[in-house]
Each structure stands twice: as structure tokens, then as C-alpha cells.
Design a protein around this nucleic acid. Structure first.
Lengths: 146, 146
DNA sequence: TGTGATTGGTTTCATTATGAAACCTTGTGC
DNA sequence: GCACAAGGTTTCATAATGAAACCAATCACA
């Protein structure tokens, strides 16, 4: 197998992104971090992932600059894992996945946690893609320029 | 190892989404399909993925209702793989990954293909997350409601 | 219409990644 | 100081991945 093929040098930003966060657990760790979880044990319990896998994912997320380790906020000698600006910027990726999943992966009648505006408590809007002039763009309305 | 742990029953839509399209290749196949590629050989050449892997990914994408097979548009006896509505709806996921990658994974001076509005040829806007009342929401402005 | 190349896979096999459990080390509560 | 918890690391079995070989159907075209 030589090696899992690396996409880090791809010219396509989607490929590069997937190379960094495209595995099964990384984005779920980021999601948990966005929900305020910071400790190894919290991630482990929440995700149900094996500890060795979690340790390896946390390490690469730190190396990639998506999480950083810092002294625990509660004063213990342990460490907190917290999102960097680069990690927080994954918000739209997380929201896009969430909204797609809500639309297509839940049966009618089945409920799931809802992302709400913290201030008003009301659900956030669906993401929309707009042209420079403000027009709403659908799946067939874009192309790539090299 | 028993089995790669399945997230399909998770209550979190992000987890379910990743269970379906969270592997290394699926989203790249979807991206290629969005660019108009339809044939096995086109995907294989574009992605450089092993044929057995590609075949298995295409199969699960079809099973998941993200792609569908139909008689080739060019009249040959081969089949086309084309996106369904569910697959086209992954646009925001693809765009979010693309924009994050552009912002964080490319050095200054390094260029990459740019997503433009097909009509005007101008780059599309960055995705934005808005509250129901229209306010722009940042990473810390949301929470989950169960 | 026969024949060689192309397309679209499947099979085989070696290697890597994943996961569960056991183990270990340091910190914490008392 | 002692028991227990937190946070990992190691070990080992199994599953997923990838490269290459192989194969059947289809196509190009003389």
C-alpha cells in the first residue's frame, strides 16, 4: 500500500482541506471543541473513540494548528485542548455538514439537536452561496477559473 | 477491530454526514461530479485513485443516493455517474471546505483554482452564517438546542 | 467483419490504519 | 502516604487501502 495517498500538494483547496481534516474523527473532535469540550477525557467519553486513536488525532490537529494545548483553565496540572482561530474558522464546514445531514439523513419525525443563535435561541438560517453582486447561486451556477 | 465504528445512528447530523461522505475520496468524487465529470475513467484519471477503491466508493455513493447511474449521454453503451439532487445539495459543504482551504492552506503567492459565478465570471462571496433576524454569526455565537 | 486498443471494472496480495484492551505514569483527594 | 482518576502508550488482531495483474465487454476502423 506504500502509504495513504497524500493530497497536501494538490492544487485544489478541497483536496488539501480533506488531507488535513478529512478523516473520520478529526471534524468530530473539532465539533466537540466548538461545543466547549477541552479535555482528553471529555472527547473520549463524548465520541466513544479508542484512546490511542484520539491521542493521535489530537496530536495531528495540534500540529496542523487547529487545536492548541494550554494549561487547564481549572487550575489543574492537566492540559486543555482549545480551538485556534484556524480551528474556529471551520465553523462553516461544520454548519454545512450539519445542515446537509439534517436535510437528507433524518427521517420525518426523527429529531436532532438544532443549532441556534445563542442570543435569541432561534435556529440559524441555512447557508447560502451568493455571487459578488448578491445573486443567490445554485449547484449549476458556478465554475472554476484556473 | 471488529468494525470501523459506525456513526449512522448518531443523533448529531454532523456525525451522520461524516458516516456517509466522511472518507478520503467520496467528497473528491462529488467535487469532480460537480465539475461535470461523469465517467469511471474520468474520475480515475483526475483523482489518481486505485480502480478498486474508486469502484467501491462509486458503489456506496450510488447506494446512498448521492450519485446515480444512467445510460451515457454520448450514446455509448457505457454508464454515466451523475449527481442526484441530494448530491448537488452538497454544494455548500464543498464550498465551505474550499474556502477554508484557500484561507489557511495556501501560502501567500501560491495560487489555486477559484470558484466563480458562471454568469459574471467573478469570484463568489464567502459563505456567511446568519441568525433568523439576519445578524451575522461568528464561531462563538451559536449553541445547540436539544 | 475481424482485430487491436479502450473502458470499466474485479481479484490478489502486501502494507497500513484502526480499534479494544491491557498497561503505565503522573496528578489528585484525603 | 495511599488509593483512585486522568491522560496517555503499547500490544495485538482485524479491517481498509493501494498497486498491479487480470478479465470481459465495447469501440474504432481498416
Amino acid at each position: 500500500m506504500v502509504k495513504r495517498t497524500s493530497l497536501e500538494d494538490a492544487s485544489c483547496p478541497i483536496a488539501r482541506s480533506l488531507d488535513v481534516i478529512g478523516d473520520w474523527w478529526s471534524l468530530l473532535i473539532v465539533r466537540d471543541a466548538m461545543l466547549g469540550r477541552t479535555r482528553f477525557g471529555e472527547f473520549q467519553k463524548s465520541l466513544g473513540v479508542a484512546k490511542n486513536i484520539l491521542a493521535s488525532r489530537l496530536k495531528t490537529l495540534v500540529e496542523e494548528g487547529i487545536l492548541e494545548q494550554r494549561a487547564a483553565a481549572d487550575g489543574s496540572a492537566y492540559q486543555d485542548y482549545v480551538l485556534t482561530a484556524k480551528g474556529r474558522d471551520l465553523q462553516h464546514v461544520a454548519v454545512a455538514l450539519r445542515q446537509w445531514g439534517e436535510r437528507h439523513l433524518f427521517d420525518k419525525g426523527e429529531t436532532c439537536p438544532i443549532l441556534v443563535d445563542a442570543k435569541s435561541g432561534k435556529p440559524v438560517k441555512q447557508l447560502e452561496l451568493h455571487a459578488a453582486d448578491g445573486r443567490l447561486l445554485g449547484p449549476g451556477d458556478t465554475r472554476l477559473k484556473y
